[in-house]
Structures are given as structure tokens and as C-alpha cells.
Simulated scan of single mutants.
Amino acid sequence: MTTIAYAHPEKLVETEWLAEHRNDPGIRIVESNEDVLLYDTGHIPGAVHIDWRRDLQDQMVRDYITPEAFAALCRRNGITPDTTCIFYGDKSNWWACYALWAFELYGHRNAKILNGGRDKWVREGRALTREKPSYPEAAYPTPAARRDGEIRAFYEQTLAHQRAGLPLIDVRSPGEYTGELLHMPEYPQEGALRGGHIPGAKSMPWKTAVKEDGSFKSAEELRKIYEGDCALTPDSDTVVYCRIGERSSHTWFVLTYLLGHKKVRNYDGSWTEWGNKVGAPVTRP
């Protein structure tokens, strides 16, 4: 496990540790990428593939799958409530953090992130395979409910949060924050009618939290960023957002587990909802 003095170091594993323990009983390695084709080109041996859109979202209601569907997803991937799920993926673990956050919505808290993600594992020349694992179906009871009220913010809650002057962190790029970019060039389908940011939100791009190799910066560096520059405290009631909730899941993980902030919620509707919402207040510099 990592030895850096994070608030919850048990939520991270290093590539060296995973290479030695990937066959341990009770562990399930989960790959979740933006590029859903990457898994088929080669993945960590034993890793299952969870597609953030196909497996975790109900496209008909633009929401996450039901607790019943989540339990079925875990069962078919050989995951029990006691299984330690270790998530990793591309983009410095954007989607791995998103999948972990989604798992935690259903109460599966025995979940960790592979520090540095897929790119670090590949760069170090560690084992990859194209063989897809098969696990016996596991027993996973249907969660009683999602933890929406604890770690998730909806539009109405975010609006009330903004009106109350409580901390909002916009983790998008500076161009998105200022409104110069209505959408990221590579994501034209995720644009909005209006550019800008939620009034009162501070800009702190998600990538500020990671080093060049995609691994997380030290706890001391992260405290300077979020408790210094952003003026947050461990007791701050904070809402984070981005474009569709994936980059803000990364910052949610940093604040919640690496810094130990007690109340952080991810506004997963983010700018694709807010920027298109009639009457939602928007600010541009």
C-alpha cells in the first residue's frame, strides 16, 4: 500500500503492490476507461471491464442504474459485498474514480484506486493480457438504497448551495470555466448552450492534483492546493462539478480520501445540465 501520509492511505494501492497481490483471494481488479476499446487491447491479468455508460447508467432516465441492477452487475463479475475492488483506468484515473464513486453510491466502500492508473502500469512494463477472465457468479444482495444524499448533489441542491454562498469547486479547464469553450473539442456531444461557471465557484482544474505520471501529489501539496488556494477546510460543505461528473469524481476522491474532508458531494449533472438549464445562473469573468 502507499506510504504517503494521506488521510486514508488504505484507499490507494501502488503498482508494485498490485503486481504482487493481484491474485490474492478477495480482490477484484476493475478497469474503467473513457476509451471503452482499451480493455480489449490489453488489461491487467484478472481485471474485469466495467463500462461507465453501459454498466453504470440507465440511459432511458439519465440516471444511474437501480440498486437491483447494481447487485446483478456485481454478481456477474464475481464481486461480493466483502470483495476489495481495485479500480484503474486511463486519463489519470478519471473514470476509475467515477466508477469507484458510483460503487460507493450503492454502499460498496471496500474500493480502492490504483495510483497512476493504466498509464503508469503500462509505462512500467507490467503484465498485460487480452484474455478475459471468467468468475463464478457471486452472492450480492440488493442495496437498500443509493447514498444520493451523502455524496451526490442534484441541481436543486447545488442551486441552494450556491445561493447560500457555500464552497463550489469547478474542476474543468480554464477555458471551460471562463466560457471561452462551450465544450471540450474532443467532446462535442457534451456541450452546453451557455459557457461560464456557477456564480461563486472557484476554478481548480482536476489535473492540479496529479503528477506527470498520473499519480497523486503528496498530501502536503494537496493541502496547499485545496486548503490554501481554495480556502477549504476538512469540515467544509463542498460541492464539486465538471462537465458530466467524471473529472469531479476524481477531485471528490482527492478531497474525501486523500485529505479527509468530511462532506464533499459530486454534482454529477454538472455543466451539461447547468449550462442548458433554463434559469440557472451563470457567470463569466
Rank of each mutant, 00 (worst) to 15 (best):
Q57D: 14
K202F: 08
Y226M: 11
K112T: 12
I29C: 09
A102T: 13
H161I: 11
E273H: 14
A19F: 04
G42M: 04
I79S: 07
Y64W: 15
C97P: 01
S32R: 00
C97S: 06
G179W: 13
R22W: 06
V61Y: 14
Y257I: 04
A219F: 06
E16G: 04
Y135W: 15
T238D: 08
A231Y: 06
A69R: 15
Y155G: 10
D35P: 00
G196W: 01
G175K: 06
M1W: 09
G26C: 11
K91G: 00
Y140T: 01
E246I: 13
Y257L: 07
R109N: 13
W121Y: 03
E186G: 01
A139Y: 15
F216Q: 07
A164Q: 08
G179A: 03
P45T: 10
A192Y: 13
L255A: 07
D170T: 04
I198F: 06
M1E: 09
V36S: 09
A153N: 15
N77R: 12
E221I: 06
S248F: 03
E131R: 13
N115A: 02
Q189F: 13
Q162P: 04
P67K: 05
A19S: 13
E16C: 02
C242I: 03
L56P: 12
R284K: 08
D119H: 01
Y6L: 05
V13G: 03
P285L: 04
Q162Y: 04
A19K: 05
E68V: 14
